[in-house]
């Protein structure tokens, strides 16, 4: 049984527990053990807290990494933002001099980080540890006819030099996952553009962030989709809550429901929509009726 230290972050446990529940259930089906990182904090958020003080961002990131190091495990997580911070921090801290500076601060709270802890997005765990054959064997409910707008988000792929998952211009992993569950990934205009939330824009300039979101949703709707699927918890929030905010401002009539990748996968694996938290999103899961799904056998 493969084991990971499960980094929760902020948005998933505090605003979208459905994503946490779905991820735990799906990983359990694949016999991947998620251990708690007791006392972890915010990653810290790369675009907002990183914009305030990069040195503080690095030392708090190192503290989070040190919790996994104590467990003797690599980290997995669900948010592109957390991935951006912890993956980048782990790369920066491979440098001995920078690690020494961080450890001088961690020493004050009786901690240290030795380096080498790997940070893997659940996308990587599904791809590398589970693999497409095993994934296919677990699909009990083909989501035939479901038209999906795949949204990749920014920080899983970029900066490509550090992330090392290949080019960010035409990624395919999410479209592949959508096809794997029997659904259709529908092309739409400006597919790779940001959701608008990152870089402290959602907190600092919420209307600008929503303007990004509106443009994306309009492009998705023009392509005729039933739902949005994303591998990022923050993008998930921006699309799900953001569309409700746009509706309340009178700027959007029809909202498109949003699924996190493990929610989509869980649905195709026969898990019940309630357990996957699909009803706990701000936008109701209208696609379930179309698919004729009322429950689950697990």
């Amino acid at each position: 049984m493969k084991k990971y230290a499960f980094f929760l972050g902020c948005i998933m446990p505090l605003r979208y527990p459905g994503i946490e529940a779905a991820t735990r259930l799906v990983m359990n089906e694949f016999q991947i053990d998620l251990l708690e990182m007791n006392g972890a904090t915010c990653c810290p958020a790369p675009g907002v807290l990183g914009s305030f003080d990069l040195e503080n961002w690095l030392v708090i990131g190192a503290r989070n990494l040190s919790i996994a190091e104590q467990l003797g495990l690599d980290i997995t997580l669900t948010c592109n933002g957390c991935y951006a911070s912890l993956q980048e921090a782990s790369v920066i801290l491979n440098d001995k001099e920078r690690r020494g500076r961080v450890n001088a601060l961690l020493e004050k709270v009786k901690r240290s980080y030795g380096g080498g802890t790997q940070v893997k997005h659940v996308v990587e765990v599904l791809d590398k540890d589970v693999g497409s054959e095993t994934l296919k064997n677990h699909i009990t409910r083909q989501l035939k006819g479901l038209r999906v707008a795949a949204h990749y988000g920014c920080h899983y792929l970029k900066p490509t030099k550090i992330r090392a998952h290949g080019s960010s211009e035409r990624p395919v992993f999410l479209d592949d996952l959508v096809s794997l569950v029997g659904a259709e990934s529908v092309p739409y205009k400006d597919k790779n553009i940001c959701c608008g939330a990152g870089g402290g824009v959602r907190s600092g300039e919420p209307l600008v962030a929503l303007d990004f979101t509106l443009e994306k949703v309009q492009n998705m709707t023009a392509a005729g989709v039933d739902c949005i699927v994303t591998p990022c918890v923050f993008c998930h929030l921006q699309f799900d809550l953001g569309q409700t905010e746009l509706r309340d401002k009178g700027r959007l009539k029809e909202r498109v429901p949003v699924l996190y990748i493990t929610q989509l996968l869980g649905l195709a694996m026969g898990l019940s929509p309630e357990k996957l938290g699909l009803y706990d999103n701000s936008v109701p899961p209208a696609y379930l009726e179309r698919l004729g799904i009322t429950g689950g056998n697990k």
């Binding site: 929760l8 446990p13 505090l14 527990p17 459905g18 946490e20 529940a21 735990r24 708690e36 990182m37 007791n38 006392g39 972890a40 904090t41 503080n56 030392v59 708090i60 503290r63 601060l105 961690l106 004050k108 709270v109 901690r111 357990k275 938290g277 706990d280």
Partner: peptide, 24 residues
């Protein structure tokens, strides 16, 4: 959803919060 009411982060462990406050 069957999760603990408070996640096992600095919200559940005051000593963890004290640590990051000391760092900051």
């Amino acid at each position: 959803l069957g999760l603990s009411p408070v996640p096992p982060t600095s919200l559940l462990f005051p000593e963890a919060l004290a640590e990051i406050q000391e760092i900051m």
